[in-house]
Computed example of a mutant assay.
Amino acid sequence: MSERDRKIRVAISIGDYNGVGIEVILKTLQEKEITEFFTPVIFASTKLLSFQKDRLKFDRINFQGIQDASQVVDGKINVVNLWKDQIDVHFGKVTKEAGEHAYQSLKAASQSVIDGFTDVLVTAPINKDNIQSEEFHFPGHTEYLGEVWGGKPLMFLVSEKLRVGLVTQHIPIKDIARNINHKSVYAKIQQIHKSLVEDYAISKPKIAVLGLNPHAGDNGLLGSEEKEIITPVIERCINENQLVFGPYSADSFFNPSNLDAFDAVLAMYHDQGLVAFKTISFDEGVNYTAGLKFVRTSPDHGVAYDIAGKGIANEESFKEAIFSAIELYKNRNEYQELTKNVLQHIPLKLEKGDNKE
């Protein structure tokens, strides 16, 4: 089988194994026909996954244990054995060991995409505290992948109903306003526009931009960022022939008519965009890190310690993350094929008697 014909290989990092990550992974992969659509490559150990598989009574799942990502077997649920020892799982508990293993899984999975052994990365949730170390000193997956993969990552929450990008991501509320400037707002609009064109095949995307302050500043009464920063950036984008609108008041924007009218929304900070997104699209929402060389997605929920080990976690968001990654990968490749060498000079074949000068 040629590289072009083989199924897409999905690298999967397990996140914090004391949370619901492995549970939603296994629930997604328990369907017998799942490997007809893609080849899963999980970075963990067969011992750890078998322990959770047995707890869930998923007898139909069979693992293909391998020692390195270069040994992937297509059509099987591959497990790259990163650890040999038995791991003690403490559901719902924050442990240093779980954070260390979460990082090892993420590091190996992301490297496998760089090396070309896998095609896309889907990450199960991490605990942003216990994963911190001398090697991992990032607020989350988004920032880590921006460094190891290169690029300017955009946290893009997507679902069938809504797509939301953020100007500022994982920073304290007190630091938000000083990070809202012409450069940051313009850059995020361009990232969203580029992703919608290249990743979602939308030729003329319509982007809504929210204001920072209540009621979008009320013409300067409740803050000046809209008049001094956001509106001028929107006008610049319009002058560059992009369909960008706003700034809109965040408290009244997320209604059905607006959601139908726009292809994406740019929020100024994390909770401004994500509270609405998770309310509207929680079970099917996907976190897509746009702006990178490779495709990475994840479910839009966290480790959920409160229900870990109970077998009640909903896998729909993780399943959507996998199939979204596959679709994004295909869309990107198709875009690259369509735009490759479009301006390449094609020499004309001259007929006898034509002027050759």
Rank of each mutant, 00 (worst) to 15 (best):
Glu3Ile: 13
Gly19Thr: 07
Gly21Ile: 11
Gly21Lys: 09
Gly21Leu: 09
Ile22Thr: 12
Glu23Arg: 09
Val24Leu: 13
Leu26Cys: 04
Thr28Val: 09
Lys32His: 06
Glu33Asn: 04
Phe38Met: 01
Pro40Arg: 00
Val41Met: 03
Ile42Pro: 03
Asp54Lys: 08
Asp59Thr: 07
Ser70Glu: 11
Gly75Lys: 10
Asn78Lys: 06
Val79Gln: 07
Val80Gln: 13
Asp85Thr: 04
Val89Pro: 05
His90Ala: 11
Gly92Asp: 05
Lys96Met: 13
Glu100His: 14
Ser105Ile: 05
Lys107Gln: 10
Ser112Phe: 08
Asp115Ser: 15
Asp119Leu: 03
Asp119Pro: 03
Asp119Ile: 01
Asp129Trp: 10
Asn130Arg: 05
Ile131His: 10
Glu134Trp: 06
Gly140Pro: 02
Leu145Lys: 01
Met155Glu: 08
Ser159Thr: 06
Glu160Ser: 14
Lys161Gln: 10
Arg163His: 08
Val164Trp: 01
Thr168Tyr: 06
Ile173Arg: 08
Asn179Tyr: 06
Gln190His: 06
His193Glu: 14
His193Ser: 07
Lys194Trp: 03
Leu196Ile: 08
Val197Leu: 10
Lys204Gln: 12
Leu210Asp: 00
Gly211Thr: 00
Asp218Cys: 01
Glu225Asp: 15
Glu226Gly: 09
Pro232Phe: 03
Glu235Leu: 14
Arg236Pro: 03
Asn241Ala: 15
Phe245Trp: 04
Asp251Arg: 07
Phe253Val: 06
Pro256Gly: 07
Phe262Ser: 10
Asp263Ser: 09
Leu266Phe: 05
Leu266Pro: 04
Met268His: 11
Val295Lys: 12
Pro299Val: 13
Asp300Cys: 11
Asn314Gly: 03
Glu315Val: 03
Glu327Thr: 13
Lys330Phe: 03
Asn331Met: 11
Asn333Ile: 11
Gln336Arg: 15
Thr339Val: 04
Gly353Tyr: 06
